[in-house]
Amino acid sequence: MNAYTLLPFIVLIAAMFLMTRSAKKKQQQAANMRNEMQPGSGVRTIGGMYATVKEVNEDTVLLDAGPGVDLLFAKNAIGAVLTDEEYNRIVHGIEHDLKSDAGLVPDDASSLTESDESDGSAAATADDKIDLGKKDSAEHGADAIQAAEDKAAAAEAKAEDESKKTDGDSDAK
Protein backbone atom coordinates (compact mmCIF):
# COMPACT_ATOMS: atom_id res chain seq x y z
CA MET A 1 0.00 0.00 0.00
CA ASN A 2 0.97 3.51 -0.65
CA ALA A 3 1.67 5.98 2.20
CA TYR A 4 -0.77 8.46 0.69
CA THR A 5 -3.67 6.05 1.08
CA LEU A 6 -2.87 5.44 4.78
CA LEU A 7 -2.48 9.15 5.63
CA PRO A 8 -6.26 9.94 5.92
CA PHE A 9 -6.77 6.97 8.24
CA ILE A 10 -3.85 8.02 10.45
CA VAL A 11 -5.15 11.59 10.66
CA LEU A 12 -8.66 10.34 11.52
CA ILE A 13 -7.37 8.06 14.30
CA ALA A 14 -5.21 10.87 15.74
CA ALA A 15 -8.19 13.30 15.75
CA MET A 16 -10.39 10.74 17.51
CA PHE A 17 -7.66 10.16 20.11
CA LEU A 18 -7.32 13.88 20.82
CA MET A 19 -11.10 14.40 21.09
CA THR A 20 -11.61 11.51 23.49
CA ARG A 21 -8.66 12.64 25.56
CA SER A 22 -10.10 16.17 26.01
CA ALA A 23 -13.56 14.74 26.80
CA LYS A 24 -12.10 12.44 29.44
CA LYS A 25 -10.21 15.37 30.94
CA LYS A 26 -13.43 17.42 31.21
CA GLN A 27 -15.29 14.49 32.77
CA GLN A 28 -12.50 14.04 35.31
CA GLN A 29 -12.60 17.74 36.24
CA ALA A 30 -16.40 17.59 36.67
CA ALA A 31 -16.11 14.49 38.88
CA ASN A 32 -13.45 16.19 41.03
CA MET A 33 -15.65 19.29 41.35
CA ARG A 34 -18.63 17.19 42.49
CA ASN A 35 -16.51 15.25 44.97
CA GLU A 36 -15.15 18.47 46.52
CA MET A 37 -18.67 19.81 47.31
CA GLN A 38 -19.19 20.65 50.94
CA PRO A 39 -22.29 21.68 52.88
CA GLY A 40 -22.83 25.43 52.63
CA SER A 41 -21.44 25.88 49.12
CA GLY A 42 -23.60 27.30 46.35
CA VAL A 43 -24.28 25.16 43.28
CA ARG A 44 -26.03 25.35 39.92
CA THR A 45 -27.78 22.22 38.70
CA ILE A 46 -27.73 21.11 35.07
CA GLY A 47 -31.31 22.38 34.88
CA GLY A 48 -30.24 25.90 35.87
CA MET A 49 -31.48 25.95 39.47
CA TYR A 50 -29.31 27.70 42.08
CA ALA A 51 -29.25 26.24 45.59
CA THR A 52 -27.07 25.71 48.65
CA VAL A 53 -25.66 22.28 49.50
CA LYS A 54 -27.14 21.00 52.74
CA GLU A 55 -25.80 17.44 52.82
CA VAL A 56 -23.51 15.36 50.58
CA ASN A 57 -23.94 11.56 50.36
CA GLU A 58 -22.32 8.85 48.22
CA ASP A 59 -24.41 9.38 45.07
CA THR A 60 -26.87 12.10 46.10
CA VAL A 61 -26.83 15.69 47.29
CA LEU A 62 -29.46 17.37 49.48
CA LEU A 63 -29.97 20.97 48.33
CA ASP A 64 -31.63 23.88 50.13
CA ALA A 65 -33.48 25.80 47.40
CA GLY A 66 -35.26 28.22 49.73
CA PRO A 67 -36.88 28.49 53.15
CA GLY A 68 -38.33 25.06 53.89
CA VAL A 69 -37.53 23.66 50.42
CA ASP A 70 -35.08 20.74 50.49
CA LEU A 71 -34.45 18.83 47.27
CA LEU A 72 -32.61 15.56 46.72
CA PHE A 73 -30.49 15.44 43.54
CA ALA A 74 -28.06 12.97 42.04
CA LYS A 75 -24.47 14.15 42.17
CA ASN A 76 -24.33 14.00 38.39
CA ALA A 77 -27.08 16.64 38.23
CA ILE A 78 -24.77 19.28 39.70
CA GLY A 79 -23.50 21.41 36.84
CA ALA A 80 -21.18 23.75 38.73
CA VAL A 81 -19.99 24.50 42.23
CA LEU A 82 -19.91 28.28 42.60
CA THR A 83 -17.69 30.49 44.72
CA ASP A 84 -19.39 32.41 47.53
CA GLU A 85 -19.01 35.72 45.69
CA GLU A 86 -20.45 34.35 42.46
CA TYR A 87 -23.37 32.67 44.24
CA ASN A 88 -24.25 35.84 46.19
CA ARG A 89 -23.98 37.96 43.04
CA ILE A 90 -26.31 35.70 41.06
CA VAL A 91 -28.85 34.69 43.71
CA HIS A 92 -28.94 37.69 46.05
CA GLY A 93 -27.63 40.44 43.77
CA ILE A 94 -24.85 41.30 46.23
CA GLU A 95 -21.68 42.80 44.76
CA HIS A 96 -18.47 42.50 46.76
CA ASP A 97 -16.21 44.40 44.40
CA LEU A 98 -15.78 47.81 46.03
CA LYS A 99 -13.69 49.13 43.15
CA SER A 100 -16.66 48.97 40.79
CA ASP A 101 -18.85 51.00 43.20
CA ALA A 102 -16.77 54.15 42.59
CA GLY A 103 -17.94 54.55 39.00
CA LEU A 104 -21.62 53.87 39.58
CA VAL A 105 -24.22 56.56 39.03
CA PRO A 106 -26.41 57.11 42.12
CA ASP A 107 -30.13 56.31 42.02
CA ASP A 108 -31.04 59.89 42.81
CA ALA A 109 -29.41 63.15 41.84
CA SER A 110 -28.92 64.42 45.39
CA SER A 111 -25.22 63.65 45.40
CA LEU A 112 -24.78 65.53 42.14
CA THR A 113 -26.33 68.77 43.47
CA GLU A 114 -24.82 68.77 46.95
CA SER A 115 -21.97 71.14 47.62
CA ASP A 116 -18.98 70.48 49.83
CA GLU A 117 -20.06 73.22 52.22
CA SER A 118 -21.02 72.02 55.67
CA ASP A 119 -23.14 75.05 56.62
CA GLY A 120 -26.36 73.44 55.44
CA SER A 121 -27.09 75.86 52.60
CA ALA A 122 -27.44 72.91 50.21
CA ALA A 123 -30.16 71.42 52.39
CA ALA A 124 -31.98 74.74 52.51
CA THR A 125 -31.97 75.13 48.73
CA ALA A 126 -33.29 71.61 48.27
CA ASP A 127 -36.47 72.54 50.16
CA ASP A 128 -37.06 75.70 48.09
CA LYS A 129 -39.61 75.48 45.28
CA ILE A 130 -38.23 75.55 41.78
CA ASP A 131 -40.13 77.61 39.19
CA LEU A 132 -40.54 75.49 36.09
CA GLY A 133 -42.59 78.10 34.26
CA LYS A 134 -45.91 76.50 35.11
CA LYS A 135 -48.72 78.58 36.53
CA ASP A 136 -49.84 77.67 40.00
CA SER A 137 -53.51 76.65 39.86
CA ALA A 138 -54.37 78.44 43.11
CA GLU A 139 -52.95 81.78 41.97
CA HIS A 140 -54.19 81.70 38.39
CA GLY A 141 -57.40 79.74 38.79
CA ALA A 142 -59.61 82.76 38.02
CA ASP A 143 -57.66 83.46 34.82
CA ALA A 144 -58.09 79.86 33.68
CA ILE A 145 -61.84 79.95 34.39
CA GLN A 146 -62.24 83.23 32.49
CA ALA A 147 -60.32 81.84 29.49
CA ALA A 148 -62.51 78.72 29.45
CA GLU A 149 -65.68 80.86 29.57
CA ASP A 150 -64.40 83.02 26.70
CA LYS A 151 -63.72 79.92 24.58
CA ALA A 152 -67.20 78.56 25.30
CA ALA A 153 -68.85 81.88 24.37
CA ALA A 154 -66.85 82.05 21.12
CA ALA A 155 -67.88 78.50 20.24
CA GLU A 156 -71.58 79.32 20.89
CA ALA A 157 -71.38 82.44 18.75
CA LYS A 158 -69.78 80.50 15.91
CA ALA A 159 -72.49 77.84 16.12
CA GLU A 160 -75.24 80.51 15.97
CA ASP A 161 -73.66 82.15 12.92
CA GLU A 162 -73.51 78.83 11.10
CA SER A 163 -77.14 78.04 11.93
CA LYS A 164 -78.28 81.45 10.56
CA LYS A 165 -76.53 80.84 7.25
CA THR A 166 -78.80 79.09 4.84
CA ASP A 167 -77.97 77.11 1.83
CA GLY A 168 -79.57 78.12 -1.45
CA ASP A 169 -80.65 74.57 -2.13
CA SER A 170 -82.53 74.30 1.14
CA ASP A 171 -85.03 77.03 0.10
CA ALA A 172 -85.78 75.35 -3.19
CA LYS A 173 -86.88 72.12 -1.57
Results as ranks from 00 to 15, higher is better:
residue 85 E to Q: 12
residue 33 M to V: 00
residue 13 I to D: 15
residue 154 A to M: 13
residue 128 D to P: 04
residue 154 A to R: 11
residue 44 R to V: 05
residue 139 E to H: 06
residue 108 D to L: 05
residue 165 K to A: 06
residue 145 I to M: 10
residue 173 K to G: 04
residue 102 A to R: 09
residue 148 A to G: 10
residue 2 N to M: 11
residue 60 T to Y: 05
residue 103 G to Q: 04
residue 154 A to P: 01
residue 168 G to T: 02
residue 32 N to Q: 02
residue 118 S to C: 03
residue 145 I to T: 11
residue 165 K to Q: 09
residue 151 K to P: 05
residue 18 L to H: 14
residue 65 A to W: 02
residue 144 A to M: 07
residue 10 I to M: 15
residue 136 D to L: 06
residue 161 D to K: 14
residue 71 L to T: 09
residue 87 Y to F: 13
residue 59 D to M: 03
residue 78 I to K: 07
residue 2 N to L: 11
residue 137 S to F: 04
residue 93 G to K: 01
residue 133 G to T: 03
residue 12 L to E: 14
residue 62 L to I: 11
residue 54 K to G: 12
residue 112 L to T: 00
residue 12 L to N: 15
residue 5 T to V: 13
residue 147 A to M: 10
residue 9 F to W: 15
residue 164 K to I: 05
residue 34 R to E: 00
residue 157 A to Y: 09
residue 125 T to W: 08
residue 113 T to A: 00
residue 133 G to N: 01
residue 129 K to G: 04
residue 119 D to I: 01
residue 141 G to C: 07
residue 30 A to G: 03
residue 9 F to A: 15
residue 11 V to L: 15
residue 8 P to A: 07
residue 126 A to W: 01
residue 99 K to C: 01
residue 143 D to F: 04
residue 66 G to L: 09
residue 119 D to H: 02
residue 161 D to W: 09
residue 94 I to D: 05
residue 39 P to F: 00
residue 158 K to L: 10
residue 110 S to D: 04
residue 171 D to N: 06
residue 115 S to L: 03
residue 171 D to E: 13
residue 160 E to D: 06
residue 152 A to M: 12
residue 167 D to M: 02
residue 93 G to R: 01
residue 132 L to C: 09
residue 136 D to A: 04
residue 5 T to P: 11
residue 97 D to K: 12
residue 5 T to E: 14
residue 23 A to D: 09
residue 6 L to E: 14
residue 121 S to D: 13
residue 99 K to T: 03
residue 22 S to G: 03
residue 76 N to T: 13
residue 142 A to W: 03
residue 140 H to W: 03
residue 162 E to S: 05
residue 9 F to D: 15
residue 69 V to I: 11
residue 19 M to L: 15
residue 105 V to Q: 05
residue 158 K to D: 05
residue 136 D to P: 02
residue 26 K to I: 01
residue 74 A to G: 15
residue 139 E to M: 08
residue 124 A to I: 09
residue 48 G to T: 04
residue 137 S to P: 10
residue 61 V to E: 02
residue 35 N to T: 02
residue 27 Q to S: 03
residue 96 H to S: 09
residue 72 L to T: 11
residue 128 D to Q: 11
residue 126 A to I: 02
residue 122 A to Q: 02
residue 102 A to C: 00
residue 85 E to P: 05
residue 58 E to T: 03
residue 10 I to F: 15
residue 83 T to W: 05
residue 135 K to F: 06
residue 45 T to R: 08
residue 120 G to T: 05
residue 135 K to N: 07
residue 89 R to K: 10
residue 51 A to H: 08
residue 71 L to H: 08
residue 100 S to Y: 12
residue 142 A to K: 06
residue 91 V to S: 01
residue 65 A to G: 05
residue 126 A to T: 10
residue 121 S to C: 08
residue 47 G to N: 12
residue 150 D to S: 07
residue 69 V to T: 11
residue 134 K to H: 06
residue 164 K to Y: 06
